[in-house]
């Protein structure tokens, strides 16, 4: 432990209080706080965008020959599966909050090997490009959000120059959840793509 446990507990309580104060707004964005027990906060995120069925169709041929475009067909009653996020506040805020993705039924860690494409995350950068932010961590081999404000980012071997201490005064668990909702819920479109006789499932970036 880097932080006195009483101080860490008090900071944890303040963060939980803020989440409780904004619980209605968080639910409207698809986020339910399931459990908060020092030093863990478990939340369930419920995707809202409908699945889009993408069907390749022939479009008018351009100078290069036949042109295939993907026709978008939303399926309003289907969406992606809900998933859990566990936020660890041990040593907060000497260390950034830890974020891991969980099965909301068992709270076991989700991994891409057994649950490919079950969730994803995108960020819009300064050039308005959609950048994937849900990557595999080199040490845990589990999916992690490569974003500032998250322990797995700041303690990642490639981000040692972007220390948590530069940001900790301006970041909270509420702000962290807003960023996770933005990346993993608002910007993701679950998609089924017809490919020959098969169907590919993908979590594509949205607006």
């Amino acid at each position: 432990m880097r932080l006195d446990s009483e101080v860490a507990r008090k900071k944890f309580e303040l963060e939980v209080e803020t989440l409780e104060r904004h619980s209605i707004g968080l639910r409207q964005r698809g986020c339910w706080v399931f459990k908060s027990e020092f030093p863990i906060i478990d939340v369930v995120l419920v995707p809202k965008h409908p699945v889009q069925l993408l069907i390749p169709v022939a479009a008018p041929a351009g100078p290069g020959g036949l042109n295939i475009v993907l026709q978008q067909n939303p399926v309003p009653f289907l969406s992606a599966r809900a998933f859990g996020v566990r936020i660890g506040l041990d040593d907060f805020d000497q260390r950034a909050p830890s974020v891991s993705f969980r099965d909301p039924w068992t709270w076991e860690p989700l991994d891409y090997a057994t649950n490919p494409n079950c969730f994803n995350g995108y960020h819009i950068d300064n050039q308005n490009r959609k950048v994937p932010v849900l990557l595999i961590h080199p040490e845990s081999k589990l999916p992690f959000l490569c974003m500032r404000g998250i322990r797995e980012y700041h303690e990642h071997p490639q981000h040692t120059g972007d220390d948590w201490m530069l940001y900790r005064g301006n970041m909270s668990v509420f702000g962290l959840l807003s960023n996770i909702l933005d990346a993993c819920i608002d910007r993701v479109r679950p998609s089924l793509i017809l490919q020959g006789i098969g169907i590919a499932c993908s979590m594509m970036p949205g607006e």
Partner: peptide, 11 residues
Amino acid sequence: IELTLKVAAGG
């Protein structure tokens, strides 16, 4: 309006 620190992510 909600303000959040930009996350400069994905690298």
